[in-house]
Each structure stands twice: as C-alpha cells, then as structure tokens.
Simulated assay, not measured.
Amino acid sequence: MFDMTLADDDHGALPLLFGRVLDGEGGGRPLNWEEVQHWRPGVEGETLWIHLLRTHPGVAHWLEHTLGVSEPTAELLTSDSTRPRAFREGDALVATLRGINFNSGAEPEDMLSMQLWSDGKRVVTLRRLPLQTPRMACNDLDAGRGAVDAGALVTQLTEHLVDRMSHSIIDMNEVIDEMEDTPVDQDTDGLLDKIASIRRNCLALKRHMSPQHEALQAIANGAPAWFEQHDRREIAETIARLRRYLDDLDISKESAVVLQDDIRARAAANSQKTQYLLAIMAGIFLPLSFLTGLLGINVSDIPLAHEGDHGFWVICGLCVALLGLELAILRKLKWF
C-alpha cells in the first residue's frame, strides 16, 4: 500500500481530490486519505465516495490491491480510453462517461471523461482534467441535499453530466437565432465561419454523446441488485432527457444547414444583382465610348472637326440621343 495525500481540485498533482462518507440522509462528512485507507463497509446507511486523479502513479495498483478490482478493469479506469461504456463485473458497476468541457478556453466538443466504479458501499470516480460534475454532487452533499446511497449518487452524477449538455445546445441555438436576424451584407464570411463552427460542434457532441446513451441504457438494464428500482427509473428519465438533447442537436444542425444555405443564396443573389447592374451600365456606356472614341481619334477630315464650337454640341446631342435610344430599348426588354 502506498501513501496518497488529500487534495483539492486545484491541486491536480495529488491523487485524492476529495472524499465523502454519505450518511444516508443527504449529507456527507469529509475524510482524508488515511481515513479512506481504514474505512470499511459496516455502518448502516453509510457509503464511501472518493474522487481520484487517475493519472497519478499507483492509482491502478491501489484499485487492484485495496478494492479488489480486476487488473483489466483497473487499467480501464485509469486509461485514456474515454469512449462511454458501462458493464457489470460481479456485484460492481463499472462505467466510463463523458461530460461537456466548461473549463476556460475549451470548446463544447472537447469532452471530458469520468470513470466510475461502485460495489454499492463504495463509489470511486476518477478524472484526468477538472470536471465540474463531481464537485457539484459534492457541494450538494455538503449542503445536506445530496445522494443518500451509491445508486442515488450514480444517478445524480449522470443527471449532472447530461443536464449540463443542454447549456451548450441552448447557446448554439441562441447564436443561430441571432444570425438569422443579421443582414446578409454584413460580414458574410464571418457568418459562414460561425455556422461551420456550430455544425462541427453539433457533429462532435452527437458523436460523443450517442455512445453515452448506450452506456446509460447498460446501467439501467444490467446494474447490480444494490442499484434499486427507483434508481433505474431515475436513469430512465436521464436517458429520455439525453435522447431529447440528441434530437435537439439534430435540429440545431439542420437549422445551421438551412441558415447556411439561405445566407449563401442571398449572397449569391446580391452578387448576381450587382453583376446585372454592371452589365446594364456597360451596355449603356459601351456605345457611347465607341462613338466618342471614334470621333476623337487624331486623324484628318474627321466629321464636324471644322464646324467650330458647333461640332462639340452636335456630338453631345448625338450621345444624348443614343443614350435615350438605349434606355428605351432596355425598358422595352424589361431589363430594369
């Protein structure tokens, strides 16, 4: 057995981030690593929960030799294999779940993983990067309104993971609504870049969260007996909520596609309109340019060259008459 030291979430170099003993009434008392080492199941209604930094050396060894976790499962709980999954191992529940990364500078698609192991009397959660969900559950315990047993703690953690997903979906939908009201002539490239980013986020969230749906189904259907019926109902509600969020992701993605097509269509229409006006102006001024160029060449015996000032006005009159004729023809052709 090796030594670990109690640590807060702000001290990721130490393995024990926090620990609580659930009292069965919604509260929990903190404990340090030495107390964790000597804690044994026995007191009615008490459940141990420890949150560990899985990258710390020796965590896998401790899981194997203290908790009795099998070597493959201990490797899974401490590895970088973060695809959501859940399975039953004897009387223990093992799961890998994902949550939205709300750390500073992170993108929604930068998902964070949380590994979980529980035998009904002890719950071990592990993470590599800071994840807010365990801290939220811990705060609920400290406030006296947290989980009462291992099953309730597992359902609460999954609820927090799924609920926080809705914030990213709402934010993306708000951005889409704002862009729908933005005039297309204002930074079209910027709008298209934002839409492309939203589409990438939707695809990434869908790719990461779809396996989580399957993992929660596995918990609901195959959890050990200590995972009570009301816990299964809670998980079922979480699964239904996750299914709605996945549907909302599809709607957000389709809305982004429609908006992207609409912006491109309007931008193309504006471009065509501009080209159309340029073509009309070119059609009007090309004959005039030809006439003035023809009569302005520096050769002898140009018509009207010896008519004094009257020649200039005659040429101006011809240009005006030609302009009027062109406008009449364009009007008749309904070009404008």
Rank of each mutant, 00 (worst) to 15 (best):
M4W: 08
L16W: 02
G28P: 10
R29Y: 07
L31T: 06
L31E: 00
H38P: 02
V43F: 09
G45F: 05
L48K: 05
W49H: 00
P57T: 00
G58Y: 02
L67V: 08
G68E: 03
T73R: 07
L76Y: 12
L77W: 03
T78I: 04
T78K: 01
D80I: 07
S81W: 05
T82A: 06
F87K: 03
G90N: 08
A92T: 14
T96C: 09
I100F: 03
M114Y: 06
W117E: 03
D119T: 09
G120L: 14
G120W: 08
K121W: 09
R122S: 08
T133F: 12
D142K: 15
A143T: 04
A147H: 01
G151W: 05
M172T: 07
E174Y: 12
E174H: 15
D177Y: 11
E178D: 12
T182V: 14
P183D: 08
D189T: 15
I195Y: 02
A215F: 06
A223M: 11
E228G: 04
R233F: 08
T238E: 04
A240F: 04
Y245V: 01
D250R: 14
L259E: 04
D261G: 01
A265W: 02
N270S: 12
S271I: 04
Q272F: 12
Q275R: 13
L278F: 12
L295H: 03
V299S: 02
I302C: 00
E307C: 13
E307P: 05
H310K: 15
G311P: 08
G317V: 01
E326I: 09
L327G: 01
L327A: 03
